[in-house]
Design a binder for these strands. Structure first.
Lengths: 327, 327
DNA sequence: GCGGGCTGTTAGAGCGCTCTAACACTACGC
DNA sequence: GCGTAGTGTTAGAGCGCTCTAACAGCCCGC
């Protein structure tokens, strides 16, 4: 920095102003500094800047599982919104482990990020709440009753209702649900299924098979239904992966989809969009959720203290696994 | 830090030593400092540490596309290896755009990372080489003729040879290839296909259809082959996504897989492993590649200057889309 | 001609650590 | 007893920036 200042014939302070894009610098000085900086290959040292300014203009983004494309779309939304607000993001991978998440969060803290976004975080609620007391924290995809942490979630119940209503509109009456067990969002999805079945006057025909968000759960769920005798004309699974397992098992059984059985998943993953699969499913506006998380963080930094819990509506994407009910 | 030192009744320097885990501290002092730090909730400021020490113990990891699970596995390998060596990693998302990648790399530089790993990077070769001149840089999944940058890649040709040999061993003689076009690794995959066909005495039966690593390319490739009349008994596609497109189109045509046509993909993505798809494909040892990248970086930091280009062998994963050739 | 306001620039302290070199203390050999 | 070596601890400079407060120079109005 000293070298640049000397080369440009100005003071260090002025170099600092130029590098930060201050408007109160004459065009002449600005050009001189820019040129000197470029010539010397000068690039401000972030650590020094952060230390001196007491802020990092950085948000930490903790993604629970990089293997899951769900998080990639959240990250995209976060990225765009943060860019727009002049914030950088650093991403950490939770690797589906609370211990790894904990270390990632620790390093965010050590780095003194201005805020953090926890996506699909597995950390104990108490820990998250504790973080929120010290730093601006937003949780995405994990509902929370914290008094410090804002949340962004989809309306899981509504998603289930869309799925059931879609199937009911197609004339289905026997609609079974393969559950997500203890997975994130499974409970409200099931509750939404039950509520929508009741609302459609099909309350007596509710059937829930235990599952756990995996492909195997879908396979197993179909087997349970087969063994039970009266097979449903439609199956609504708690996520896409289970739907694909179910699809597989149905075809093995010689049942055509949607000819004999209609199938609806949840999440609208890339899998669902594959033409080979063409799964009707419930979509969450993930990029929007990411952007929303950033906005909540920015508001926090503006000293908002009231907790906000945003719930965004999902929508149904109709593809080729759902069709009219047969007699 | 001053507070902790005062609370523990020692000097600031000693607090620093304890926080960094130095062995030359008495147990008594260590315990006193640890306790005081815990009580006061003290956490060393990374920015200050980095600034003072002149190193960050951090590697920047640039992933070209978070949506692609390929990168998640690379990241896992990197994570584990870096952890073991006492390095932190920060991940940036290139979002398939050279401009975004460029900014990410700039911020790594500004942060003064000790090294960076570029996975599937789209940046111009000259730019990467320039980075390598200043910092320790390793490129994964992108071959490079740089004089400063180490690389880690799979042996794409060998992968193709494994695929062709597998099919030839099953008795296939008409094996077509749906190409990856200008995508990364497409050229050597095609070259490997041609070489292996020749080696198997099937040189005269080589057939390459243009593609581009997408599902549509697979669909289109099958259509081209259908239009050509003599249909092959096996198809080897440049990646899994194309294979799935091909699979789809083959089934639409009433051709059974592997009854009428065998199909082999490349990459062993999660898609291939879905039971519903069960694609025979070529696997790259991605976690190993990530770990290797870290080791190369560590060697660089130990002042190795000779460029190393690691090539790791792929393997074939046989599932249910490949079977004996029919007459 | 002078005070006031504006613009552009700067000196210098300080951010929270690490690191070097020095120092106090104990143990040991002769 | 003294020199030597080793162990544990510390003072203080310095890392590369930002930021406050002050200042120089200029234009303006009266």
């Amino acid at each position: 920095m000293d070298d640049v200042a000397a080369a440009a014939g100005v003071s260090r302070a002025l170099v600092s102003l130029v590098m930060r894009g201050s408007p109160r610098v004459s065009d002449r000085s600005r050009a001189a500094v820019r040129q000197a900086a470029a010539r010397l290959g000068y690039r401000p040292n972030l650590a020094a800047r952060n230390l001196a300014s007491g802020r990092t203009s950085t948000f930490g983004v903790l993604l629970n599982d990089l293997h899951n494309p769900w998080f990639a779309e959240i990250a995209d939304g976060i990225h765009d919104a943060a860019d727009g607000a002049g914030y950088q993001i650093i991403i950490a991978n939770g690797r589906r482990s609370a211990a790894t998440e904990d270390r990632a969060v620790e390093s965010f803290l050590a780095y003194r990020v201005d805020g953090m976004i926890l996506a699909g975080c597995r950390l104990p609620a108490g820990r998250i709440d504790g973080l929120g007391a010290k730093t601006a924290v937003v949780s995405v995809g994990r509902p929370l009753r914290s008094s410090h942490v804002d949340t962004v979630n989809t309306d899981e119940r509504l998603g289930s209702e869309l799925a059931v209503r879609h199937l009911a509109d197609l004339g289905h009456r026997d609609i079974a649900h393969i559950d997500g067990g203890r997975g994130a969002g499974a409970a409200p999805r099931k509750a939404g299924y039950l509520a929508a079945m009741n609302a459609a006057g099909l309350g007596a025909r509710c059937r829930v098979v235990a599952g756990d968000f995996t492909e195997e759960a879908g396979v197993h769920g179909v087997e349970v239904l087969l063994a039970a005798g009266r097979f449903p004309t439609a199956i609504y699974t708690a996520n896409d992966l289970s739907a694909i397992g179910a699809l597989d098992r149905l075809e093995d059984e010689g049942l055509s989809v949607p000819g004999d059985v209609s199938l609806v998943g949840f999440d609208n993953t890339a899998l669902a969009a594959l033409h080979h699969i063409g799964l009707t499913t419930i979509d969450q506006p993930r990029a929007t959720m990411g952007a929303l998380a950033v906005h909540l963080l920015l508001e926090r930094l503006e000293r908002r203290t009231i907790v906000r819990r945003e719930v965004v509506p999902p929508s149904i994407v109709v593809r080729s696994t759902s069709g009219p009910a047969h007699a």
